[in-house]
Write a protein that binds this DNA or RNA. Structure first.
Length: 388
DNA sequence: TCTGGGGTCCTAGGACCC
DNA sequence: TCTGGGGTCCTAGGACCC
């Protein structure tokens, strides 16, 4: 291929998405530290004078983590993933709101539709972020970014941050550089100045484990990673991941925008309010287990899929996690069949220790439509004709 | 007072087939 | 004396992401 034009790939990330959606509903909280998370029982209540009374972090007791926090709460050291009880020590007066996924899904659809009106080549990356391929669009890159941000704001009242570079890897890093409400545009020659000083953790795909291992090798910045011997990386991280680390540090990423994808698995899981014992809490556990199986079945039916592999996930009180799965002769979305298969999996796990989490999953999915198409195919008719 | 819930992808070993 | 070898499916665990 003769030196093609560099692509123009955008990564758009909504700013503190869940928290910002809540602020649309409760504008009086604007400017205050607010965190989203915990159990669903911390709903605001309306007082006699019509004003709302909000739960404070200090009032919370029990399990749960922070899902999102406003920038005011982040300034106090409260970040997503943190236990609510720990967050309460740092910011006891912060307002606590339970998650409201229906609202977030609504605004997610709105912002994605607004972007699609300008640039239809979109890759979904979850509820609050997308990649956009702008390569085929005319116009100046900065103006395009400004138009997209304005369209998102008009459609939702929410701000976002955008990074635009020749590939997904760099754009993902860049959308985070000038948050909130930022635009960052760079090309490959900017990598040493803008990307290399950053910590390795900023690269999508380098998580806590790899960061720690790199630190033991004396590598903390992307520059350090870029200058590391590829052979050294491959020795410590394996051939494939070692090679990828080297390329990532040099800003190399040829991956395309994926505009359509099918789900691979559908699951439900729950962490108990207190740890449960297989024998002592048998009835409680059994009820939860059946509910999870029913939910998975409902999800499958609603989305039009059948699963052929059914699996369970258990987390013990010491956080050790085990999974078991079984592949059935035929795909299913039937709650009783799923419950039977999941029960079979459960019998293969020793249950001396207390449990904190139970999960049920369906994988090896096939879409009902595809299956019907096969059933209606001439081969199937022929088979049927021969073996009625 | 530890650590949610929904996913994806990768690795690795064993079974089984040709 | 050495001891096939590639391909696919199934299962379990782990890293990572939003």
């Amino acid at each position: 291929m003769m030196n093609a034009q560099p692509r123009r790939i955008a990564h758009l990330d909504m700013d503190a998405f869940y928290a910002s959606v809540e602020l649309l509903r409760y504008p009086e909280l604007r400017g205050h530290p607010v965190v989203i998370g915990g159990r669903s029982d911390s709903q605001p209540t309306v007082q006699q004078d019509g004003s709302r009374r909000f739960a404070r972090l200090r009032d919370y007791a029990g399990r749960g983590v922070i899902t999102t926090s406003t920038y005011e709460a982040r300034a106090l050291g409260v970040f997503s993933g943190m236990g609510v009880m720990k967050a309460a020590q740092l910011a006891p007066d912060a307002v606590l709101l339970p998650v409201n996924f229906d609202a977030y899904r609504h605004y997610s659809r709105l912002f994605k539709a607004a972007v699609a009106g300008i640039a239809p080549q979109i890759e979904d990356r979850g509820i609050d972020e997308i990649y956009i391929d702008l390569s085929a669009l005319p116009g100046n890159t900065l103006e395009l970014a400004q138009r997209i941000k304005q369209a998102v704001l008009d459609a939702t009242g929410l701000s976002c941050s955008i990074g635009i570079t020749p590939n997904k890897l760099l754009s993902k890093i860049c959308s985070d550089l000038e948050k909130p409400d930022g635009i960052t545009i760079l090309n490959l020659t900017d990598i040493p100045r803008r990307i290399w000083p950053l910590p390795v953790r900023k690269i999508n795909g380098i998580g806590p484990k790899a960061t720690e291992k790199l630190a033991t090798l004396g590598i903390t910045t992307i520059a350090g990673l870029a200058h590391a011997e590829p052979a050294l990386l491959q020795m410590h991280f394996g051939r494939s991941y070692g090679c990828w680390l080297h390329e990532a540090a040099h800003g190399i990423d040829d991956s395309r925008i994926i505009t359509h994808s099918e789900p691979k698995s559908i699951s439900r899981e729950t962490t108990f309010e207190r740890d449960l014992h297989a024998r002592h809490d048998r009835a409680t556990l059994s009820g939860i287990f059946t509910t999870l199986c029913t939910r998975v079945a409902e999800d499958l039916q609603r989305k039009g899929y059948l699963g052929r592999t059914i699996g369970i996930k258990l987390r013990f009180d010491d956080f050790r996690t085990v999974t078991r799965d079984v592949t059935l002769p035929a795909p299913t979305a039937d709650p009783a069949t799923i419950r039977r298969a999941a029960g079979e999996c459960l019998r293969r796990v020793p249950l001396q220790q207390k449990l904190r989490l139970l999960g049920v999953r369906a994988s090896a999915l096939s879409s009902k439509d595809a299956l019907l198409a096969i059933d209606a195919s001439p081969q199937a008719e022929l088979q049927f004709a021969m073996n009625p």
